[in-house]
Write a protein that binds this DNA or RNA. Structure first.
Length: 573
RNA sequence: GGCCCCGUAGCUCAGCUGGAUAGAGCGACCGCCUCCUAAGCGGUAGGUCACAGGUUCGAAUCCUGUCGGGGUCGCCA
């Protein structure tokens, strides 16, 4: 049920007829032909740019083509009129019954807006992937919410989605974690911890130290580091991942796969990924040019094993081995993405923090090389979250102990507010998050605004239930405000597909606010014109014709909020 | 200096991958509850879409350059 694609199909059919009748030349590309809502609804219900797209290739005037097209379209019973306007737009007005038909279809279906656009293709969405060395911070939370909503959105349009987290448990930072946890272990044994510079000072490691005492007693105290480092590291990273899973859980974010970087080492998987690149002639021994412009003080030329990423769009080649011969982090990333490709995904999406912007080109180069350009990789960069308290920037410092974790924020404002506020901004724009203002129950808080609309719907439906008004009867759309709501409902499938195609879940959030706005407007017209109220006391027949519209609004809001992971409220208090 | 992102109303931001007279919220001003929830609604005011070129029927949107803000730049992950 997608009114715009239905009418577009009708337009395409008319264009084919024109071609076969010699009114248009053969073989014109139709990809750019759109059928969309006009900016001004006074222009009609839909507008197509077909004549403008074809004018040049057909060597005729756009308005002339539009005129002929209009003649073919009026044969469609769903189309009441088609008028040429402006430079050659064709404004289409739909027949009266179309809108009530749409509303009835929506209010009686459970899956309005879903589509088979994805055709069951498999997409891997990797997000969060924070180091397992501490609690998630607010920036991780934004990536988590974005990735989760994007995954839901893609599922909604028919993709087979895997939500994945890459655990960076293979580098030096987890050794530092182990040493930091060991100091907390000593502390739990009654000794003074010595937390050196560069260690993780957070008190969240104290429970790890205590758990180590339960496991080992005091037996580790006199042992040299090499005897305990591996065990303590594994134990501590497991505990950190437990904590991160809990943090994500408070936001309602869950993963299908947790992929361990460490699992790549010693398994030969890095070697096989690199030999795959080697077979393509993309691995060589060489010396990189120094960085252009600003020269680092300690730069000196070194011979390294390099990946020829410039062959796939990168600015310079990238080292896969450190000078001591061990793998760079990039090498394990290559192996990880080789693994993803070999698992058969049609598309990969990585959600990174903006500070990883420098890795975009090389990762795309790797995936392009390893998949012979068959698997597209889209990397979504998530910009900073700046925390505010009452309009003033909130400075955080781990040392001063006023560090605000994701958990702190969710505990304070709740998962629904956290999620929607983060989704009301494009991923590539910085986000100001004011811990006090997001809780104000005012009009500028989209969470309350949208949930209020849904609560009003539920209130009406409850009232209808009490009065015995059936909610499955044909609707009657008469007033302009009712029509405006129906039009907005009609846009939903199209909006969902656009948002999914561009990997931009924020569009769903903005759409829901617009739909809520139209609904609130209609609701308030019921103050001025009681005949517009959905429930007409004492007149079941009239009420039955009005109840489908709010019901349809409720269905769209609730499925939209479902994509965003926000609870649709039954009541407002 | 190289690369990436951003620049739209006083403020915070949308703008449906190039469409018609650029939109919303906040702030300001004026209105609307004996009425399904006023946490809502209607109206007024506010713009050289950073700047300059280019591409074409048509540009906030695409290309080039300039200015301003942020991020990032070989043996960290």
């Amino acid at each position: 049920m997608n009114l715009f694609s239905d009418i577009r199909a009708s337009v395409m059919e008319a264009l084919e007829t024109m071609t076969s009748m010699g009114e248009l030349p053969e073989g014109l590309p139709t990809d750019d032909v759109t059928v969309e809502p006009p900016r001004d609804s006074a222009h009609g219900d839909m507008a197509t740019n077909a004549a403008l797209v074809f004018a040049k290739r057909a060597r005729s005037r756009p308005r002339d083509i539009a005129e002929i097209l209009a003649g073919h379209l009026v044969g469609d019973p769903r189309i009441e009129s088609a008028e040429v306007a402006g430079p050659g737009f064709l404004n289409i007005r739909l027949a009266d019954g179309i809108w009530s038909g749409l509303v009835d279809a929506v209010s009686n279906s459970g899956n309005y807006g879903r589509s088979d656009m994805g055709a069951g293709k498999r997409i891997n969405v990797e997000y969060v992937s924070a180091n397992p060395t501490g609690p998630l911070h607010v920036g991780h939370g934004r990536g988590a919410v974005f990735g989760d909503a994007l995954a839901s959105l893609l599922e909604f349009v028919g993709y087979d989605v895997t939500r994945e987290y890459y655990i960076n448990d293979g580098g030096a930072q987890v050794d530092v974690l182990a040493r930091s946890a060991f100091e907390r272990y000593r502390e739990a044994c009654g000794l003074a911890p010595e937390i050196a510079d560069g260690m993780y000072p957070g008190s969240y490691l104290m429970f790890v130290g205590e758990a180590l005492v339960e496991l080992y007693g005091e037996t580790l105290l006199d042992q040299p580091e090499e005897t305990w480092l591996g065990d303590v590291r594994d134990f501590a990273t497991d505990r950190m991942m437990d904590m991160i899973r809990e943090d994500l859980g408070t936001l309602g974010v869950g993963m299908d796969v947790f992929f361990s970087e460490k699992s790549l080492y010693g398994s030969g998987r890095i070697d096989s990924a690199l030999s795959s690149l080697s077979e393509r002639g993309l691995i060589y021994e060489g010396v990189l040019d120094p960085p252009k412009g600003k020269m680092p003080d300690d730069w000196e030329p070194r011979r390294q094993t390099l990946f020829r990423s410039t062959g796939h769009g990168d600015d310079m080649d990238r080292p896969v081995r450190k000078s001591d011969g061990s793998w760079t982090y990039f090498a394990s990333d290559i192996a990880y993405h080789f693994d993803k490709i070999s698992r058969g995904y049609d598309t990969l999406i990585n959600v990174f923090g903006a500070d990883h912007g420098g890795y975009v080109k090389r990762m795309k180069a790797v995936v392009s090389a390893l998949s012979d350009s068959n698997v597209p990789l889209d990397i979504k960069l998530i910009q900073l979250v700046r925390l505010y308290r009452n309009g003033a920037p909130f400075k955080m410092s781990k040392r001063k102990g006023n560090f605000v974790t994701l958990r702190d924020v969710v505990d304070r404002v709740g998962p629904d507010v956290t999620r929607l506020v983060m989704l009301m901004r494009r991923n590539d724009a910085a986000l100001d998050f004011d811990l006090d203002r997001v809780l104000e129950q005012s009009r500028d808080n989209p969470v309350f605004y949208i949930q209020y609309a849904h609560a009003r719907v539920r209130s009406v439906l409850r009232r209808a239930g009490e009065l015995g008004i059936p909610t499955d009867q044909p609707s009657r759309i008469e007033d302009a405000a009712e029509l405006a709501v129906a039009r907005k409902i009609a846009e939903w499938p199209r909006l969902v597909e656009t948002a999914a195609r561009s990997h931009e879940p924020h569009r769903v959030a903005f759409y829901l606010r617009e739909l809520a706005s139209e609904f609130h407007a209609l609701w308030n017209r019921g103050n001025e014109f009681p005949g517009l109220r959905f429930v007409q006391e004492g007149d079941i027949a009239t009420s039955a014709g009005k109840i489908a519209l709010p019901k349809a609004v409720g269905i769209v809001i609730s499925s939209g909020l479902g994509i965003l992971g926000v609870t649709p409220a039954e009541h407002m208090h």
